[in-house]
């Protein structure tokens, strides 16, 4: 459907000022024809849930560069369950290889590392949205 625009909520969760990567990802997804609702820095799980509800997000993208992914990733998923909101979460940024399986096992839909090329970012987001 040509009018079917994927709506992505992109946020930095927690105390983390590194927003260069998320801005690049926002541009990649925009140029792939998606609608990116950009929340920016210092978001909380509550603010992301509120945005995902109001924006009817198809997917949530979290950018993590503060080594908090093993705590904040599951906390995000718990907040979404609490709100009875069925939206997949993709985590990008600096995530050590050793942590990826644990994140996926906790329910994160996909993890994108620093080297991920633009088309992998786009295909991953599309796959996650279609597999909901």
């Amino acid at each position: 459907m040509s009018d079917r625009h994927i709506r992505v909520v992109l946020a930095k969760l927690g105390l983390d000022g590194h927003d260069r990567g998320i801005k690049v990802v926002a541009r990649i997804l925009r140029d792939a024809g998606m609608e990116v609702i950009y929340l920016g820095l210092r978001q909380t799980t509550d603010s992301i849930v509120a945005a995902a509800e109001q924006e009817d997000a198809d997917v949530i993208g979290l950018s993590m560069h503060n080594a908090g992914h093993l705590t904040l990733g599951p906390a995000m998923l718990a907040a979404l369950r609490e709100a009875e909101l069925d939206v997949p979460v993709v985590i990008g940024g600096i995530v050590p290889d050793a942590d990826i399986d644990e994140l996926l096992a906790s329910g994160v839909a996909a993890v994108l590392g620093p080297g991920a090329p633009a088309d992998e970012v786009v295909t991953t987001v599309r796959r996650v949205v279609q597999g909901e």
């Binding site: 926002a26 990116v36 603010s47």
Partner: peptide, 27 residues
């Protein structure tokens, strides 16, 4: 491309849980 970056919520983060804010792309 039909894509959009909707950034108005960045300025509205203090009110987004008490008001309803919806970003609309012109398409």
């Amino acid at each position: 491309t039909g894509g959009a970056i909707l950034g108005d919520r960045v300025r509205m983060s203090e009110v987004e849980s008490v008001a309803f804010i919806r970003s609309v792309a012109t398409r």
